[in-house]
Amino acid sequence: MNDSTLRIVWIYPDLLSTYGDRGNMLILAHRAAARGIPVETYEVRSDMQMPTTADIYLIGGGEDGPQALAAQRLIADGGLNRAVAQGASVLAICAGYQLFGHSFFAKGTKCGGLGLLDITSDRGETRAVGELRGDIDPRLGLPPLTGFENHGGRTHLGAHAAPLARVTGGIGNDGQTEGAWYGKIIGTYSHGPALARNPALADLLLRWSTGADRLAPLDDTWAERLRGERLTAGLPA
């Protein structure tokens, strides 16, 4: 944090916002405030200049047209790349995850991305819809990932990106790995309010951006019940 306030930016909600993307911003602000950390949230529309001094940037899912437009504008603006270079944390979801890579496909055309993650995305044979589960990279020290995925893309990781998780249920990037991370950037196909089911991931973003080694524990009884239910849903008893 540059000063005593944690700043969270939601990137282009006018273009990239499917079901519940707002949730990640609400959850981060809630968990910061519960630790006594002053927090400000900003919704930066695509016709606004991207601030470079926020601590956490969030980008959500969306349809092909808005995805391509968002990538063009972010490249032209340049502010997000500068913010990442200065050490900002990022949570990028679905279409937002894809456009952090080198390239992605939208409306049948290959589009250039921000190049902030060493990934490329293309179209899968089938749409991946349903529960998504995986064991998160042990270096991040987090419990298993649970989410709901709904995407037609497949993502291939280069040498400079690590999978966020090894898939134990669902498809993710390709049926084997799910999401990617590099530095303080996390990308995932766990769609919409990914942090609702993964409070430890929310706290990782908060720790990265505050520099705190640990945060005061919160009462996550309901989130833990939800995790317990979703991590076993549809599995044989």
Partner: peptide, 9 residues
């Protein structure tokens, strides 16, 4: 619908 994400909207 199988997805509850809309609750956050």
């Amino acid at each position: 619908g199988l997805d509850t994400s809309w609750l956050w909207d």
